[in-house]
Computed example of a mutant assay.
Amino acid sequence: MVRSHGRAGEGGKAPRRMKKPLAAPLFLILPAVVLYVIFFIWPAAIGLFYSFTNYKGLSKYRMVGLSNYTTLLADHDFWSSLLRTFEYILCSVPLNVCLSLLAAVLVTNRKAVGRTLARTLFFIPWLVSPIITGLIWRWMFGEGFGIVNQVIQGLGGHPMRWATDANLSFLVLILAGVWAGMAFNMLLFITALENVQTSLYEAASLDGANIWQKFVHITLPGIAPTTFMVVLLGTIGGIKEFAMVQALNGGGPGTSNRLVVQYIYETGFSNSRIGYASAASMVLLVILVAVSLLQMRLNKKTGGR
């Protein structure tokens, strides 16, 4: 005798599925959505609108169409600051990735002594605000009062022109940015390293692989998604860098190390050309999206997940 399962056979009708309530989830995410609209969507919409005007911070303004964008395309100062920004990224991001990964490997090595203390020391820079970071490095590399020049003079050398030489000032900016960003990236790499299967290392040891071969053929492929994330976040953060640079050297000497966000800030607030600065912000937004999409596509082609 065949037993019927449940009530599906009664009247030939299948049981109704209970509908999941949607009101509670929507109610819970509503505050986040409201805050996102207020602090992100609405300012972006206002900026897009102002980019088509000659708004200068006053109540009166007029529509200028694409005039701001056409002028921006021929603005040497904008492209110069954008080029300097990409130079900063090309120098700081690879160095940051290498040093962060090195620090993560060291603090996850079971044979290393003082791993807990090392993690704490490496993590401290991330707790410091960008403005304080800029002031610290400005104090360290000051020409007349900096600790670095005092050490150089104590060793019999000549003081370096850290603030008045464009290349040296740019070098200090790179070092400060790497120092500030290492901690967070190190934490990401630590998590990725701990998730690599130990059985792969054991199998490689049985096959006679050395430490370098294990690192290249097991560690690097195992942490590839995290490496991509670190590069992407570092690139976006470098494009948006402002507070640290403002506190460190103000884009100096002169405007030789002025990054693109500083240019937008000075144009909008110092020169009261908010409409024009809004157009520059919109162009920067497009560049950010393009860079992100390009990196994601390259990661997909190289086999990243």
Results as ranks from 00 to 15, higher is better:
residue 32 A to P: 06
residue 44 A to Q: 02
residue 288 L to R: 03
residue 109 N to A: 11
residue 270 S to W: 10
residue 35 L to M: 14
residue 188 L to F: 05
residue 112 A to D: 01
residue 259 L to M: 14
residue 100 S to A: 15
residue 99 L to R: 11
residue 65 G to Y: 06
residue 50 Y to G: 05
residue 62 R to F: 11
residue 242 F to D: 00
residue 110 R to Q: 13
residue 76 H to P: 06
residue 210 N to Y: 06
residue 165 D to C: 08
residue 140 M to K: 08
residue 12 G to D: 11
residue 64 V to M: 03
residue 71 T to C: 08
residue 287 I to A: 13
residue 303 G to Y: 12
residue 49 F to Q: 08
residue 98 C to I: 15
residue 228 F to H: 07
residue 287 I to L: 15
residue 287 I to R: 02
residue 154 G to N: 05
residue 59 S to K: 13
residue 75 D to E: 13
residue 229 M to A: 11
residue 157 G to W: 13
residue 170 F to I: 03
residue 157 G to Q: 11
residue 114 G to F: 00
residue 67 S to N: 05
residue 175 L to N: 04
residue 161 R to S: 14
residue 239 I to T: 08
residue 65 G to E: 01
residue 214 K to G: 06
residue 169 S to D: 04
residue 265 Y to V: 05
residue 223 I to G: 10
residue 161 R to C: 06
residue 254 G to I: 07
residue 75 D to C: 09
residue 102 L to P: 08
residue 101 L to T: 04
residue 86 F to Y: 08
residue 15 P to Y: 15
residue 77 D to S: 15
residue 51 S to V: 03
residue 211 I to E: 10
residue 70 T to Q: 14
residue 251 G to Q: 09
residue 68 N to C: 02
residue 124 I to L: 14
residue 181 G to T: 08
residue 81 S to H: 07
residue 64 V to I: 11
residue 236 I to C: 03
residue 23 A to C: 07
residue 142 G to S: 07
residue 98 C to R: 11
residue 8 A to M: 12
residue 56 K to M: 12
residue 27 F to C: 15
residue 297 R to I: 10
residue 274 I to A: 04
residue 6 G to H: 12
residue 246 Q to T: 15
residue 72 L to R: 08
residue 177 G to Y: 02
residue 245 V to D: 10
residue 21 P to T: 10
residue 209 A to K: 00
residue 86 F to R: 04
residue 160 M to H: 09
residue 212 W to S: 03
residue 210 N to W: 06
residue 88 Y to W: 14
residue 302 T to F: 14
residue 26 L to M: 15
residue 119 R to E: 04
residue 184 F to Q: 05
residue 157 G to E: 13
residue 276 Y to A: 04
residue 28 L to W: 14
residue 299 N to T: 12
residue 182 M to D: 00
residue 136 I to K: 03
residue 78 F to K: 00
residue 156 G to T: 02
residue 111 K to T: 06
residue 120 T to H: 08
residue 304 G to Q: 13
residue 277 A to H: 01
residue 105 V to P: 05
residue 99 L to Q: 10
